[in-house]
Lab assay of single mutants.
Amino acid sequence: MTVLPKDIPGDSLKVTVGTANGKPGDTVTVPVTFADVAKMKNVGTCNFYLGYDASLLEVVSVDAGPIVKNAAVNFSSSASNGTISFLFLDNTITDELITADGVFANIKFKLKSVTAKTTTPVTFKDGGAFGDGTMSKIASVTKTNGSVTIDP
């Protein structure tokens, strides 16, 4: 049996954390987006972790974005102690894959008090994996961190 590389060099799934701005007490939304989904033969499963400074940001909610089908079954998240974990699994293993680019999740943060303008990162942590529509590992994932700026 011969195994051929399935990824064209330079191609990767792009996962990007967005940015937001606000004043202390505001609730802002930071999107997590996927790009080049079709090039990577869709997404059938993924789990990953984001870190944030809990002294500056309070997670209000984490909701599935419009590219997630049947989110009540296929999407899960949790947030505590400065870490947000995400889990997606197409429970049907074929019919509810992520097949389009767009917003995977929206994180709502309540901004805490600061004395001066502060930009705090929302960054990928170690761990996690992504699988394509056949549940094979997506070897190349380009992750881009985001941030939230609090301006009193």
Rank of each mutant, 00 (worst) to 15 (best):
P66A: 12
V3A: 10
V103D: 06
A71I: 11
D126C: 15
S55L: 08
P66H: 10
G133Q: 05
T120Q: 03
G44D: 03
G146W: 01
G22A: 10
A35M: 09
D11K: 10
S113E: 03
G127C: 04
P66N: 09
N47Q: 01
V30P: 02
P152H: 14
D132G: 03
D151F: 15
V30C: 07
F104Q: 04
S140W: 02
V73F: 06
L89R: 02
A129E: 06
N145I: 04
T144K: 09
V37A: 13
K6G: 06
L56F: 09
D36Q: 11
K110E: 04
D63V: 09
G22E: 14
P5R: 02
K108N: 03
G133W: 06
V3L: 12
P24Q: 12
P152M: 15
D7I: 10
A105H: 00
A38E: 10
Y49I: 01
V122E: 06
A64N: 11
P24C: 14
I84K: 02
L97V: 04
V15F: 01
V15Q: 05
D63C: 09
P121Q: 07
T33Q: 09
F88R: 02
D36V: 13
A72H: 14
K112L: 03
K6W: 08
T115Y: 03
S136R: 08
S12F: 09
G10Y: 07
D132P: 03
K125F: 03
S140Q: 07
V114N: 10
V103R: 05
K110Q: 03
K112H: 04
L56V: 12
A64Y: 14
Y49V: 03
L89A: 00
P31Y: 07
F75D: 01
G102D: 06
F104N: 01
T123H: 10
F109I: 02
I98F: 04
G82A: 15
F75G: 02
A38I: 13
T19E: 14
P9N: 08
D90W: 04
G127P: 02
S61D: 08
G102W: 03
V122N: 07
E58P: 03
K41A: 10
F124M: 01
T19F: 10
N81R: 15
M135G: 02
P5V: 06
L13G: 04
N70Y: 07
S85P: 03
D11Q: 11
T94A: 04
I98N: 04
C46Q: 04
P66W: 15
I138W: 04
I67W: 04
K117I: 05
N106H: 08
M135I: 14
N74P: 01
T94D: 00
I98R: 03
Y49C: 05
K117T: 04
A64E: 08
T99S: 06
V114I: 08
S76R: 02
S61I: 12
Y49H: 03
V60H: 12
K6P: 11
C46T: 10
D26V: 11
V59F: 11
T92V: 03
T118M: 07
F86T: 00
N74Q: 00
V17W: 06
G10H: 12
I8T: 12
K14E: 14
N106C: 03
N91S: 06
G51D: 14
D36F: 14
F75T: 02
V60C: 13
A129D: 00
P121R: 12
D126M: 15
L97M: 06
T120M: 03
G51K: 13
L50I: 08
P9Y: 08
K143G: 01
P121W: 03
E96W: 02
T142H: 08
T83I: 15
V114W: 10
L97N: 03
F34Q: 07
P9Q: 08
T83G: 15
A20H: 09
S76P: 01
K117C: 05
G133S: 03
A105V: 05
F48K: 04
A100C: 05
S85T: 04
K117M: 06
P152L: 14
T123A: 08
P5M: 06
F88N: 00
D26E: 09
K137P: 01
N106A: 06
T149G: 15
K6M: 14
G82I: 15
V103C: 06
S136G: 06
V103G: 05
P31S: 11
I84F: 05
G131A: 02
F34G: 08
T134S: 07
S77T: 12
N70G: 13
P31A: 11
M1L: 10
P66Q: 10
P9D: 14
I107L: 04
N106D: 05
F86Q: 01
F130A: 03
I8Q: 10
T19A: 13
D126Q: 15
N91T: 04
T99L: 05
A38N: 09
F104R: 00
A139D: 05
V62M: 11
K69M: 07
A139L: 07
F48H: 09
N91V: 05
D7S: 11
I107A: 02
S55P: 08
F48C: 08
D132Q: 04
K69W: 12
I150D: 14
N91H: 07
D53N: 09
G146F: 06
D53K: 10
G131V: 02
N74R: 00
V3G: 12
N91A: 01
P9H: 12
S61V: 09
V122L: 04
G102H: 01
K125L: 05
G131E: 00
S80F: 12
L111M: 06
D26G: 11
A139K: 14
K117D: 05
D132C: 04
T115W: 05
P5A: 09
T45E: 00
G128I: 00
L50W: 12
Y52M: 08
L87G: 00
I138L: 02
A79C: 15
T27A: 11
I93M: 03
S113A: 07
N145E: 05
T134N: 04
F124V: 04
N21C: 13
S136A: 02
T16E: 08
D126I: 15
G22S: 13
L13A: 11
A71L: 07
A79T: 15
A72I: 12
N47I: 02
N81P: 15
T27K: 09
G133N: 04
V122H: 05
S61M: 14
K112Y: 03
K14D: 15
L57N: 11
A64V: 07
F109H: 02
M1T: 08
K143P: 01
K23G: 09
F48E: 04
K14Y: 14
V114G: 08
S55E: 11
I93T: 02
D132M: 00
S147C: 05
M40F: 05
K41S: 09
K6C: 14
D11Y: 12
M135D: 00
S12N: 14
P121K: 11
V68L: 12
I8Y: 10
G25L: 10
I98Q: 02
K41F: 14
T83C: 07
V37C: 08
S80R: 15
T149R: 14
I67S: 11
A35F: 13
V37W: 03
V68S: 10
T33G: 13
K108R: 06
F109N: 02
G22T: 09
M135H: 00
